[in-house]
Design a protein around this nucleic acid. Sequence first.
RNA 1: GGGGGCGUAGCUCAGUCGGUAGAGCAUCGGCCUUUUAAGCCGCUGGUCGGAGGUUCGAGUCCUCCCGCCCUCACCA
Length: 500
Amino acid sequence: MTDRLTQVRLQKLDRIRKEGLDPYPARASRSHTSIAAAEAFEAAAKDEEVRVTVAGRLRSIREMGRTAFVHIEDNDGRLQLYLREDELGLDKFDLFLEAFDLGDFIQAEGEMFRTRTGEVTVRVESFLMLSKAIYPLPAVKEEVVNDEIVIHSAFDNPEARYRERYADLAVNPEIRDVFRTRARIIDALRQYLNNLGFLEVETPVLQTIYGGAAAEPFVTHHNQLHRDLYLRISFELYLKRLLVGGFERVYEIGKDFRNEGVDRIHQPEFTQLEFYMAYADYRVVMDVTEDMITYTVEEVLGGTQFEYQGQTIDVTPPWGRIELRAAIAEQTGIDYAEHKSEKALRKAILKAGIEAPEEASRGKLIEHLLDHHVVPEIIQPTFLYDYPRDISPLVKANPDNPESVERFEGFVAGMEICNAFTELNDPLEQEQRFLEMGRTYEEDDVNRHPLDEDYLRAMRYGMPPNGGFGMGIDRLTMLLTDRPFIREVILFPHLRAKEY
RNA sequence: GGGGGCGUAGCUCAGUCGGUAGAGCAUCGGCCUUUUAAGCCGCUGGUCGGAGGUUCGAGUCCUCCCGCCCUCACCA
């Protein structure tokens, strides 16, 4: 694209070259970041000279006759520079005004002082272009009113922001903060698990048989092997093979891929944490979950309470613990234990004036009640436990009640954030469950699982009893950054390809 | 996939009943040596998402297509 704005900047690029300067020099130097420079000035004695070399991107230029005030922005924040013709000389000063634009990266050296309005500023004695910007960044203006930053003409067209996330990040500092927080969340989770003796591992993204969740996979193809492969929909079956191998505590943080609809809390590519813990059951995993998330929230936010979309969330243990059956009964008046068959339960649901999906198993009906009538009501951190067996093929049955399995999910702010269970480690029962699954789903159901013979083989060598856990990192990040949409916490969310 | 909404200058947005396409900021030119949404004066800048249609005349009405948003469905 060579529109007029771009043409002007290309001419400026030439102008810089004609001055004998490289608009993209290989080397930069800086003695202080913006914050370090301001701190050094504040710490210095009254008459002491504080000389700095700073670097950053030009974010504002206020030309005032033979002087100019500009702000540069670096990773730490913003710093004001003051340029004067009598300080720089006519040629240099003109070069700056005529060839430097918003968005350019520059380097400047000078002595620090405080302006009449009290702002710590660098009086520039020399400057360099570090990188000339050819396209103008979206024109965002900021104003400080009563210590609050008011943004004018924000760059907030969603399509443009996600397509050009780099521009979004460049002009919206709060978006950069979202991803700094995201990194700290992952860091805290790692610390927590490492401290408990967990081993971080990596398992295949390309799988010959997908499993561990009910989801439609992405299919790809390996040319040399002449076979289709699937992008993983979960890590579960590989991580549990590692327990067979003798590791007692393993976890993985990585991407899962599900070829399904995109909405407020779903993206086809998302980040998951799963861990497996030998000799633990789902009760232990519940305790660990509470503790791990509390630790993470404290590390990242400095406390156990935070605001999410206008509601105060408190993760301080103990979290609510309610049997799934009781939670559904409370919200809908339906006790599914009284309706043992799919038919009977469907009848009860319709009688209660609630919609029931067509062609759903009894477990699917229960799940529908959970998703639509219980989950939206759960604001404070809560575990629901003991799930129907037919929607949980990898979970060990509850010894007191063979109808239910030892599984729980954690919910916060109307969102499911984790799913965990006492893992089924009986190879014969697992095989039986897989076969049951094959019957539950129709032949052409995309969620019907191919039977993973190799996983059964692994189990036959002996798998220690263990508790497993999975959590969506993106959703946790949504909570801790107060973002209502999952695409806000994913750097490059998926959009349709645009042709240029 | 169904339903609804939207797409106008680099950015944020107006555009009435179908009658020559506008504003602020940015850009460009001028003034201004402690400004900070700096200020003042002036000038530019448009395939109105794309294609077709109705009409003397379409940003506006109709059809199809593309993209984004919301919502439903799907989603251990």
